[in-house]
Structures are given as C-alpha cells and as structure tokens.
Amino acid sequence: MRRAPGWLKAYCGGIYTFLYLPMGVMMAFSFNSAHRNVAWAGFTFRWYVKLFHDAQWAQALGTSLELAVSAAVISAALGLLASYAMARHSDFRGKRAYASLLNVPMMMPEVILGVGLLTFFVRAHLRLSFWTLVVSHVVFCLPYATGTIRARLMSLKQSSFEEAAMDLGATEWQAFKRVTFPLAWPAIFSGAVLAFTVSFEDFVTTFFVAGIGTVTMPIKIYSMMKFGITPEVNALATLLLLLTAAGLLAHYLLAGER
C-alpha cells in the first residue's frame, strides 16, 4: 500500500477542518454556560432544558416534524407509483422526458422554486397554509424518494421476480403485493427517510410559501438570529443537525441492504 505524501494529508486535513470545525464549535458552544459565543465558561445542559420549556420552540419542532413526515409519506407513495411505471414498462412515449422532468426540482435553484410556488398559490387563490407548505415540500422531495425507489425496482426487474410470480399464477396486483412490494420495502422506507431529511432542513422554499403562523425549525432559527447567535440557537441547530445526520445514516444503511 502506498503512503500518502505529507502535503496531501495536510491538504485533506485542511478541507475536513473547514467542513466540520464550524459545526463542532457550534455543538461545543451549545454546552457553554456563558451567554455569548466568545469564551468558554463551563459545561451546561441549561440551553437544552430552556429550549424544551419554551412553547414556541416545541411548536416549531412539532410543525417541522409534521411537515417532514407528511412530505415524506406523500413523496414515497408518489415516487413508488412513478418508479413502478418506469420499471414496469421498458418503453413508453416520452419516458425519458418523464424521468428527467421528475428530477428537475432537485436541480432548480430553490429561490426560483420558492418564487414560482408562491406566484402559483397566489394566482390560484390558495391561501398559504400548512398544506400549501406540504405540497411545496413534496415538489422538491419527490426526486429524492423516486431516485431511491426506482433504483431498487430496476434491480428487482433484472431478477425477473415479478415475471416469476405471474408465471406461477399471480395477477399483476398479486405479484406486486406478494413479491415486489415486500422486496422493495427497504428502499421505499429509505427513500421516505431521505425525503424527510430534505424536508426537515429546508429553509428557502419554506421561507417563501409558509403562511403567517406556520413556523418551522429552520425559520425559527433564522428569526432568532436577528437577535444574535445565542446559545439556544446553538442547541437547536445541534438537535437539527443530529436528526438530519440520523436520517441520512438510516437512508444509507437501508439503501445499502442486499
């Protein structure tokens, strides 16, 4: 095995420091007993306790969870249908356009997505509410869920499981229910988890389409920061970070299965 030269190690070390040190500092300061992020004054859980006693924060967390779960479930369900169509039919008119258009929201700048959705809701005379927010989140979560589920369905197709089931007397629905769905379930769940993560941490689109009174965690953090970065913000951001990381880890563990 070749050993990496010193300069390469230093370079990589520098990159990772730059990537992760700010998060580390933020997490560390969430346990700092001083009021300002300047000097370390001792370890405390005070900010977390305070956070959990603050009704506004709890409400923001609740809204975020409700929103992310709804967006994840809807995205996974729609993603399953779309993936099934693409895996089942080797070719249909406009299949490539269909597949690419599904992915566009993932690549589109979020500001544009946000403005577009807001314009749409206003023009359609839909009052901004929790549900307009769910619809908006599904728009950009769908490609993540679909990508994961579609990859799994494609590989299942390679193994002819569904054909084998139909050969043995299963109708298309029976084959789906008894074979395809159980085998695709880990991917469906992991696609939903990924969608959850993406929805949970979203700020830009939410900022545009959240109605008055619908406050998610990222929005709450942003509004808090107008008064400076308090240790409470650090604590909240740390929780957000851990939850997101847990979601991503779950996604990769499930997607890597088999």
Binding site: E163, A164, D167, L168, A170
Partner: peptide, 27 residues
Amino acid sequence: PYRRDVHTVFQNYALFPHLNVAENVAF
C-alpha cells in the same frame, strides 16, 4: 402469463429472497 398452463424455470432462477424454500415452492 397467469392464465397459461405453463411454468418457467428462469435462467437466474428468480427465487423470492424474502421467502424460504418451502414458501417459494408453495407460492
């Protein structure tokens, strides 16, 4: 396929990995 009185042995076998041997045969 499910309305034809023929069965297929697939090249890659296509055995259902979430079922055991007996459940596969009994499918």
